[in-house]
Simulated assay, not measured.
Amino acid sequence: MEQLPKSLLVRRFGAFFIDHFIIVFFIVMSFFLVIDPSENEISSMLIRIILLIVCAFVLYGCKDIVNGRSMGKRFFGLAVRDNNQELPSTSKLIIRNLFTFLWPIELIAILISKQKRKIGDRLVNTDVYSVKNNKNILGIALSITSIVVFFVCIMFFGILQIIKRDESYLIATDFIKSSSEIKEIVGNEITLGYFPSGAINYENGYGNSDLTIKVKGKKGTTLVHIILSKEPNRDWGIESIDY
């Protein structure tokens, strides 16, 4: 069997930064998705933050389980292999990444060691190698697709957060939560949907906000369509509401 060459450190660092960017991006976007600025229950928010931290551990641990190659490794033509240069078991691929959160220590371990292996690789007897199919179609396609998806997600979640943090949205949600008529439909314990739709426009001090918000409760679910307007030096006012 032909021996695979050890990867260059610069390529390993490049792969790490790509993987790190992907995972951090996913976690940050998920944070904005599950944390509603109109929600005041600290305990609920704390539980969601803990779940996101757990998800981060899982993502970092499992990033190489597909053929020993994460997205960053595919982009740079790298792969994790054992001492026999064969694909390690899934458990080894997970264990080698458990120390990723201690990346400063991992970095020092790589730089000062003669074999240039991180702690996880030493623990399970693995290493990172350059593979022949550096320019394989699958790796290129996955890399390009991931970049496109990330930019689309950035735009989507960016617009979503602009809406959810706008003053008109906060006024609309406050009205919904205090509305006795809406509570009669869905119940007293109101939960707002994560994906409001609509548009908010500002021009010369005037504003128009047209929002549709899903409202859920123990009794049922309804869509609330609310229109607000704003004049210069005045707060938002509700023009109409339909549900």
Score class of each variant (00 low, 15 high):
Trp103Ile: 11
Leu98Thr: 05
Leu93His: 03
Lys92Trp: 13
Arg117His: 04
Ile110Asn: 03
Leu123Arg: 05
Arg117Ser: 02
Ile108Arg: 06
Ser113His: 09
Lys116Tyr: 01
Phe101Ser: 10
Glu106Thr: 01
Lys118Val: 11
Trp103Lys: 10
Leu123Met: 03
Phe99Lys: 15
Arg122Ala: 07
Ser113Asp: 12
Leu123Trp: 06
Thr100Trp: 09
Arg96His: 10
Asp121Tyr: 00
Pro104Phe: 14
Phe99Thr: 09
Phe99Gln: 11
Ser89His: 06
Phe101Asp: 07
Arg96Cys: 12
Ile95Met: 11
Ile112Glu: 00
Ile108Ala: 10
Thr90Gln: 09
Trp103Glu: 12
Arg117Trp: 14
Arg122Ser: 12
Pro104Gly: 01
Leu98Val: 08
Phe99Arg: 12
Gln115Pro: 03
Ile105Leu: 11
Ile105Phe: 13
Leu123Cys: 07
Glu106Pro: 00
Lys116Trp: 06
Arg117Cys: 04
Leu111Cys: 05
Phe101Gln: 10
Lys114Cys: 02
Ser91Ile: 13
Leu123Glu: 05
Ile108Pro: 02
Gly120Glu: 08
Leu102Ala: 10
Gln115Cys: 07
Leu107Ser: 08
Asp121Pro: 02
Lys118Pro: 04
Ile105Lys: 10
Leu93Trp: 14
Leu123Lys: 02
Lys116Val: 01
Ile94His: 08
Leu102Lys: 05
Thr100Pro: 15
Lys116Thr: 00
Arg122Gly: 12
Phe101Trp: 11
Leu93Asp: 01
Ala109Trp: 07
Trp103Ser: 15
Thr100Arg: 04
Ile95Ala: 12
Phe99Asn: 10
Ile112Gly: 07
Phe99Ser: 10
Phe99Val: 11
Leu102Glu: 08
